[in-house]
Write a protein that binds this DNA or RNA. Structure first.
Lengths: 179, 179
DNA sequence: GATGCCATGTATCTGTTAGAAATATCTGGC
DNA sequence: GCCAGATATTTCTAACAGATACATGGCATC
């Protein structure tokens, strides 16, 4: 599965919820999938064009001039299921924090401790955000068929944030003492 | 800090260990930083050219024809310290597993459970690999000044893998029962 | 009801990046 | 000598992020 196919998953998936303009699609992906996925206009417009050419989405006239609302077609739903069943594609790791810490001897111990404190605070803030989101959505979406699946993606964020905070704590412990 | 600057960090950092060819640089980055960083030839060669133009690395004749060994210069070390002190740059999230699970209703419950079992196995295997790497490097590098910093990056992998396995378990629990 | 601001909406451009492919060169085994 | 495989360089393509340019409509406020 090429990278662009995963963009198609995000776009087709969002369109299964409701027909949308490209602009709304980008908003939806940012606001709903934002914790684990992102797409830019530079990807969304060409992807929609390709999906239209293949008959997987249909273009409807929008509410205002020169505005298009995209609707997923039956062939688009079939395509989505096909793409969802392809193996998960990992993207290359790029963790700027670990890159800095790896060269920590060059950076200096105190500066590393600052980075770790920052990472810990960020992780705790993010965890609180996820907990709040979970509680909020449990009320709003708790009885929809999508809820168990949405919940799993938020749980992933909580577990990840908790692990990041614990890791930062452990590192701060081992990095203390004489410089 | 642009992404290309972070490539410069990886390249200059690796060259602080020892002078290398571009090929060896790529090997070193893949083998040593591979758990949290990656660079391709398409990035390494232009980056080395740019660093040479700026005087941050020096090109030496290599062991064979048309082969160059790159050496970091004092200005290169200064540049590395400068880059390490710039704020960490996050790259946009792209988690193919969570993307699939989010649309789990379309994918089907049993297929989601398969994905989760796969994720759990992968996380446990990766954790075992990190534990082994940690034990191995503790012997080989345990008394070098770089060790505390290298250790932190491996610890991050262990915490992350542990969290991923726990998350997958929790999800499998909530996703069981009638289809 | 004119004006200006902001959200909505479309489209494209630039530079960055991953990954693979094409091409040499060297080393060791046979 | 010659082949396989490791080392090494260079280039290409498509994916991609992010910015920018531009147009449209709603609505607040004076």
């Amino acid at each position: 599965m090429s990278r662009s196919s995963q963009t198609q998953v995000a776009v087709l998936g969002a369109l299964t919820v409701e027909p949308m303009t490209a602009y709304a699609l980008r908003e939806a992906i940012r606001d709903v999938l934002g914790h684990f996925w992102s797409e830019s206009f530079g990807q969304i417009y060409p992807t929609l064009q390709a999906l239209e050419d293949e008959g997987h989405v249909r273009r409807q006239e929008g509410a205002r001039a020169r505005s298009s609302v995209f609707v997923i077609t039956p062939s688009g739903t079939a395509r989505l299921i096909e793409l969802l069943n392809e193996p998960v594609q990992e993207n290359p790791p790029r963790n700027g924090l670990l890159l800095r810490l790896f060269f920590g001897r060059v950076l200096g111990r105190e500066r590393c401790r600052e980075l770790l404190r920052g990472a810990k605070n960020a992780a705790e803030a993010q965890r609180a955000e996820y907990e709040q989101l979970l509680a909020h959505l449990a009320v709003a979406e708790g009885d929809t068929p999508d809820w168990p699946y949405i919940r799993m993606t938020i749980l992933a964020g909580i577990h990840h944030a908790r692990a990041a905070a614990a890791w930062a704590d452990e590192c701060l412990d081992t990095l203390q003492g004489e410089p």
